[in-house]
Nucleic acid binder design. Structure first.
Lengths: 205, 205
DNA sequence: AAAAGTTTGTGAAACATATGACATATCCTA
DNA sequence: TAGGATATGTCATATGTTTCACAAACTTTT
């Protein structure tokens, strides 16, 4: 009976939420599945169907109250409160992530950053001091951090992931170009820009 | 008859190629759909089916010659030669992308980097000098660049995309958290780390 | 040289996802 | 207040994707 909500639907919710925030910034108060779909390049039927997994949020004849739908999506995605996030790797990418301003208003706060390079440990990234990787366990446990981003070379990513999982992390955003092996209950998402580029070069003929 | 190859299949080829490279680095010469699938967390049937869209690359009883399959995938994805890539935005992210060592052996060379900040123009990122955005058109045309990465704030991303398309770019990897509007024939891929994180927080209950 | 063991490539079946279409509700205009 | 316009939520349908299962080809063992 209570069939599970498809993961692919969950994956679209952040995009809906993002676009709603944009609409709100533009001063709009109400939108429709049609308008949203047009802006996102998605069919209006799909948006209505996706949302209907979670409840009736709209009003026939009118559409969706933007503020209300935003709140509901935040609740569903559990970003109605802030998550502390750990960054492992204080190279160019790790530092860029730690300083990126786009996380704050979307439910995330970079809480700590780690590296294994003695030359980097102790230095500051924004107002965060880089900690040694040996501190991962205590720091993550102390702050009950459940989310981490891995921005270390592929050769060290699995080892880092193991440590993070041991420390209690349950969601990993992995920038290293390898598949991580993690126990059940831990989720991993991957970002591999070169793979995206190769996906596109296929079509460049 | 000649049905088109699904885009989702194309999207997996770079992952297969990446894993083959890893296997080759480990000194292995032959692999099987089963081994590959196990390492990637994908069913062996899917890998065989995906590859079969392009031809018979394996040998029954043996599996796949890694070198050969790598070559074939590179040819299919058109990364058997190097593509020059433009980066727009020389902030933390743009600089991290420009200096990232992971593109070179996967078919890409960062050819130029642009910014609109007079304080950044003229400075060096690695051995690339940051150019002003007003140079985008001439530079991209001169070097026949067809691929670009956008690493500017959301507020400027569409404008940058328009300029890039006008200059001849046909593939864009967009790091700005907005959907870009581009003409037919131009492909866009999106990277939005906050969206990935929100996708995962859904499951953190 | 035969038997046992692997592994591919592929059609058919199962499963998952997206679209179409419409009853119903609401808004707007006159 | 009636009629036209708009938009949701949902069931049925269509499309897309993955898995299953097996013949055929090859390797290894006995």
């Amino acid at each position: 009976m209570s069939s599970e909500i498809p993961d692919i639907v969950i994956g679209r919710l952040p995009i809906y939420l993002r676009e709603l925030t944009l609409l709100a910034q533009e001063g709009q108060e109400v939108t429709s599945s049609h308008e949203l779909g047009k802006r996102l390049g998605i069919s209006s039927a799909q948006i209505r169907k996706d949302l209907s997994w979670f409840g009736p949020f709209g009003k026939q004849g009118t559409g969706y109250q933007i503020n209300y739908l935003q709140e509901q999506l935040k609740k569903i995605l559990q970003v109605d409160h802030e998550w502390p996030v750990a960054v492992v790797g204080a190279g160019d990418l790790g530092r860029a992530l730690a300083r990126y301003g786009g996380f704050a208003h979307r439910g995330f706060r970079i809480a700590c950053i780690f590296d294994n390079d003695p030359g980097k440990i102790g230095s500051y990234v924004g107002n965060l001091q880089v900690l040694g990787v040996e501190k991962i366990k205590e720091e993550i446990a102390a702050h009950h951090i459940q989310i981490a981003m891995i921005a270390v070379p592929a050769s060290h990513a699995q080892e880092v992931a193991d440590t993070l999982v041991e420390a209690g992390v349950r969601a990993i955003l992995n920038y290293a170009p390898i598949i991580l092996s993690v126990p059940d209950g831990v989720r991993v998402q991957y970002i591999d820009p070169a793979a995206h580029l190769q996906h596109m070069t296929y079509y460049l003929r």
